[in-house]
Design a protein around this nucleic acid. Structure first.
Lengths: 199, 199
DNA sequence: CTGAGGCTACCAAGCGATTGGTTGATTTTG
DNA sequence: CAAAATCAACCAATCGCTTGGTAGCCTCAG
């Protein structure tokens, strides 16, 4: 039984193992600095065997990136489904979910921010941008519902908020006094500022 | 005279040419994806000749990064010297100078943001972090002088502001309707918000 | 119940190309 | 001429990727 269970979990998992190892290495060392052999070694197979599961190194990046984006998307949409109707509350909920995944243990979500699409060409770059833009559209609606002063551009506001959020991986330290949740609250407060002095 | 001047500007310029080409390629393709031969070809020399001017590829990155940081530092300090005493005005002046250089034509400053220090190891990483932290200390003082509500952490505020600023290279398009100056004003307004409704 | 055939997942070996870097000779320049 | 700067050729290592082959498992005809 244990044998059967192991065989069952092994089957089909190998591909995910490769993808996860690739995501982790892409996130920590960068795409170009990660070799096919690095990935294979981490999984415990030879580099050639990797091509049974994936057509190319690019395919590995594209799929890891897509999985990261969908992880963040699902987390944010789930948070929004439980959030209230107050516009600032909804933004706060989205930011909290965003950071919980982005700063969490999943290697996939960590692939998203440091891999500047500008470092890629043609089809790959277009695909990465499409995936990311699809996600950021959520924030377009969220910000549009915000009661911003006339002088504040919703577009700049949205990009500033995303910038503040996506910049956190460069300074966040998992062991520190700040948690993803506290950081999200702090960032939203920094933007919301004097709107609600009681907060 | 033109000859003498050309010869004069050529001398010692070759090294700068190499450094500038390296910075441009590092910024657009990333460090790992840029080869020594790419750089040499852009300058019009062979790859071996490059090692007369620089000891290694790493030395090239370190010096390009240092030059980028000092360019931004000098621009911000110059802007602060001309700015008034009002805390928000000083922050606005610093942000404007920051973005004018970061989104400007200099390839050096563009090396700073996309090269995540986390992608490097040991000495190189430590040096990159030291250079960047030295610059960001300016913003620590700037933010400390700000009349922030008690609920807003100065640290988070500073990191959010820097995140918003440093994220701009991912979406800024030189030909578009927004300019570095207008973006800087927009970002500062997004944080300043309702402080001064007349603005 | 058996055993041939096919499928999955991998290994071992190696392909041509490219990598960062070195070296001695050669050219350019003051 | 001497120093500064570059070339030409090369090195060992590594790159992404391909190939031929083969264990182990599953299916199904006989």
């Amino acid at each position: 039984m244990a044998k059967g269970k192991a065989a069952l979990s092994d089957r089909g998992n190998r591909r995910d193992d490769v993808l996860e190892a690739a995501a982790g290495l892409f996130a920590s060392k960068g795409y170009a600095a990660t070799s096919i052999r690095d990935i294979a070694q981490q999984v415990g197979i030879l580099s050639g065997s990797l091509y049974y599961h994936f057509a190319s190194k690019e395919a590995l990046l594209l799929e890891a990136h897509a999985r990261g984006v969908s992880q963040v998307t699902e987390a944010v949409e789930a948070a929004l489904a439980e959030a209230g109707k107050a516009p600032w509350d909804r933004v706060a909920a989205a930011c909290r979910a965003h950071l919980e995944v982005l700063l969490g243990p999943s290697p996939f979500s960590q692939v998203i921010t440091p891999q500047f699409p500008s470092h890629f060409d043609g089809e790959v770059r277009a695909t990465l941008l499409r995936q990311r833009d699809g996600y950021e559209a959520i924030f377009r609606d969220l910000v549009a519902a915000l009661p911003l002063p006339g002088a504040v551009s919703p577009g700049i506001f949205r990009l500033s908020l995303l910038g503040a959020l996506n910049w956190t991986p460069t300074w966040y330290q998992p062991g520190g006094s700040e948690t993803p949740v506290s950081i999200a609250r702090g960032i939203v407060d920094a933007f919301r500022l004097q709107l609600d002095p009681a907060a």
